[in-house]
Write a protein that binds this DNA or RNA. Structure first.
Lengths: 209, 209
DNA sequence: GTCTATAGGTGGATAGAC
DNA sequence: GTCTATCCACCTATAGAC
């Protein structure tokens, strides 16, 4: 039995609203006043749960990373092929963009120059975890023949992650999610699979010139 | 002879400092006070040249786009091959990143949700111009055999631009320009040239598995 | 064109009552 | 835990002297 936990969990509600605000307006574009207004509480009570904004920011990243790690575990449990896993990975970002939001950490990466040091370190960790997961999937896929690419899995993972973040940013700026979809499909086709994406390896190359 | 122009040009000096501030701290991360302090003038005199911050922001984008258009013209004048033009294009961004700065417009794209409407429109135009130039180079390169890629030049241009912006953002966040270099080389190799990059078309593909 | 001075607002953060 | 009240730093912007 739970002893005396707050049932709807104030902390969680604050984090949810704050996360959405950062993902739409950026860390320097939202304030305690915004959160307070949306939740119908005062700024002071927010400071009770999150003493400083740097504190709030750090915990936002930590929660975001946790939810990502969970999602990645689900992907590994529910899919077998490397290509399908990459697809699912990209679909996570698709979902974020569908809500007209930017990836929390992509947004913070842009604001890196003004972030408190603790947030920078936590942010780094998020990217490291993502890149490591992608590299693992890429390597396994290459080794069992699902995927084909040149160079190290780590380098490809880094480019993949960068491209996804950039594509989200531009697609959101254009207000056109199709831009993101187009980018992900091409990335999968180029890096992932000269075999599976087109069901006929050379057919599409013939479309050149 | 020049009649009575302000020699070091106050407006230009303001724009230069402001641009650097936006590219390192973001539009919501700098203030008139920052510029004033660096130039040794007062905030009030800045407002004389740029009445509102939205005004300043819009003119920053316009100037950034102009300098880009000039650079693109130089590239077209000095190089012939599509691949070399793409390389030169990427080198522009490399130079920006080398100063530990983000692309002005990539930064603003992240902050899109909080930008004044006039800035949003001007920003869009910058991306349109870049994408159009890239698409033109890609199409010409494909038609004369310099480049090979599937799909429309426009789609590839969009991915290329997105990937570059994303790669800049992440590389700057990691404080590691090599991450950007690695990304651009791979992009050139994948999209640009199964022939020129490796001087031996199939050799690198053979490195799979 | 640049200054001083200031308006009017919002930022993050704290003290202390309830 | 949440409130009222308040602090002080900073923000964008303007008025008016020089």
């Amino acid at each position: 039995m739970k002893p005396t936990e707050t049932p709807p969990d104030t902390v969680q509600r604050i984090l949810e609203v704050a996360s959405r605000l950062v993902q739409t307006r950026g860390f320097n574009g939202f304030s305690y006043a915004h959160i307070a207004a949306e939740l119908g509480v005062t700024k002071a009570s927010l400071h009770y749960h999150f003493p400083s904004k740097a504190d709030l920011g750090r915990r936002l990243i930590e929660q975001y990373e946790r939810s990502f790690v969970e999602a990645l575990a689900h992907i590994e449990a529910e899919t077998a092929g490397a290509l399908e896993r990459l697809r699912r990975y990209m679909r996570i970002y698709s979902g974020v963009l569908g809500n007209e939001q930017m990836c929390l950490c992509g947004m913070l990466a842009a604001e890196h120059g003004t972030l408190p040091a603790p947030m920078r370190r936590t942010l780094q960790h998020y990217f490291d975890v993502n890149e490591a997961w992608l590299a693992k999937v890429l390597e396994q896929g290459r080794d069992n023949g699902d995927l084909r690419f040149d160079g190290s899995p780590g380098d490809v993972a880094a480019l993949l992650l960068s491209s996804l973040e950039g594509a989200m940013m531009l697609a959101r700026s254009y207000g056109d999610p199709k831009r993101f979809k187009s980018a992900t499909e091409r990335l999968l086709a180029e890096f992932g699979v000269p075999s599976a994406a087109a069901a006929r390896p050379r057919a599409r190359k013939a479309a050149r010139r």
